[in-house]
């Protein structure tokens, strides 16, 4: 018999490469899931996430606001995260649960990669995330839904991909751009006019930042650029060289462009009629 001194026997047992399953068997209480009461009025909600593919990758951006009812709970929340070297996850919905879900998702991907010696496929990652959302279904029914947007560079297919979800864990592949969260209707409308195939990374980043501006313009829960506090959207890309984040200076310059343009035309860039 192997003693449990040092490393407990469960650690040595043959099992799958899933960290979530391992956690469920040894420390189930650490899994992000519901306690009991209805907390929807207490929990801050994250709002708008936008993503678009371009030639050589995919870009994802999120505003920085979290709301609690009509209050602004946080002005500088981070809602777009790298989930591993080649993928990004953006979160909308109950912020506390979503942030915790992202934390578990990141460990899940890294754990698999270390145990197996090779990363999961992009589809594999997307399916694992779907499973986590599905486990949150009881909470979703109490008003604490988490709706992430997942995007990444598919190293096998060599192009950027976007995958969206619903609160039940349903998984949908988006072809070129997508948006989730309270301001998503407006952001998607804007992106529809701004997006075109074959954009560069910079153009795609500009398109998603413009779309976020339009979302903030019409949705009170989405935060616009905060010029006095210098709080700007977080923009990340995933491409063949991995995940990269636009640094604050780049975003600030981009924001200056956006605002200068909107001084002349407050509704943003004009799309052709034909």
């Amino acid at each position: 018999m192997v003693s449990d001194a040092g490393l407990p026997p469960q650690f040595l047992r043959a099992g799958s490469s899933s960290f979530t399953e391992f956690l469920a068997s040894v420390r189930p209480e650490l899994l992000p899931k519901d306690r009991d009461a209805d907390l929807s009025h207490l929990a801050p909600h994250g709002t708008t996430i936008v993503a678009a593919t371009f030639d050589g990758g995919v870009v994802m951006a999120g505003d920085r606001r979290a709301t609690m009812g009509n209050l602004i709970a946080q002005r500088d929340i981070q809602k777009v995260y790298p989930s591993d070297e080649y993928s990004l996850v953006g979160i909308a919905g109950a912020a506390g649960i979503a942030v915790e879900m992202v934390r578990l998702f990141r460990v899940e991907l890294e754990h698999y990669e270390k145990v197996e010696g090779a990363p999961l496929s992009l589809d594999g990652k997307a399916n694992r995330l779907a499973g986590m959302i599905r486990q949150n279904l009881p909470m979703a029914m109490q008003g604490l839904a988490v709706v992430p947007l997942f995007a990444g560079w598919d190293t096998a297919a060599q192009h950027g991909r976007i995958i969206s979800y619903d609160a039940t864990g349903g998984r949908y592949e988006e072809s070129s751009f997508h948006s989730v969260g309270s301001g998503s209707v407006f952001a998607r409308g804007a992106l529809k006019k701004l997006y075109r195939p074959g954009m560069t990374a910079e153009q795609a980043a500009m398109a998603v930042v413009q779309a976020l501006y339009d979302a903030a313009d019409d949705d009170s829960a989405t935060g616009g650029p905060d010029l006095t506090r210098k709080i700007f959207p977080i923009v990340m890309i995933a491409g063949p060289d991995g995940v990269d984040q636009f640094d604050e200076a780049e975003i600030a310059a981009m924001m200056d462009d956006v605002i200068a343009g909107r001084m002349n035309r407050p509704d943003g860039p004009e799309a052709g009629l034909r």
């Binding site: 960290f19 956690l23 040894v26």
Partner: peptide
């Protein structure tokens, strides 16, 4: 790996 990931996550 399990020891490290579990500790880092908790």
């Amino acid at each position: 790996i399990r020891h490290a990931d579990l500790r880092g996550y908790s």
